[in-house]
């Protein structure tokens, strides 16, 4: 299981617009991938409902996890999306 810990860059947290960009990238991956708030159960990173439901705030740390072929590259890509300050708003 590969993991990344990353802080949310979006000023508004992982809400509509940044969440949608993140989920789309996760959904394109062939392997399962999860996102969790620190110390909380992971949820499906390919579900916009699950990610919006997490209600992650700006600068909060999240844990991304995936397993299987391409997991490391996938998590690098997703971590950079979480950390970015682009796609602000929503």
């Amino acid at each position: 299981m590969a993991e990344r810990r990353v802080r949310v860059g979006s000023k508004v947290g992982l809400h509509a617009r940044p969440a949608a960009v993140f989920v789309r990238a996760a959904a394109e991956a062939p392997v399962d991938v999860t996102i969790a708030r620190r110390g909380r159960p992971p949820v499906n990173a390919k579900s916009i409902l699950a990610v919006l439901g997490l209600d992650v705030r700006h600068d909060e740390e999240v844990v991304l996890a995936a397993e299987g072929e391409g997991a490391e590259e996938l998590l690098d890509r997703l971590a950079s999306l979480v950390a970015t300050t682009e796609h602000d708003g929503g």
């Binding site: 509509a16 617009r17 969440a19 949608a20 960009v21 789309r24 916009i48 796609h87 708003g89």
Partner: peptide, 11 residues
Amino acid sequence: PDPVLAEAMVG
């Protein structure tokens, strides 16, 4: 007037 919403990326 927002590309992410307009392209149905949220849903």
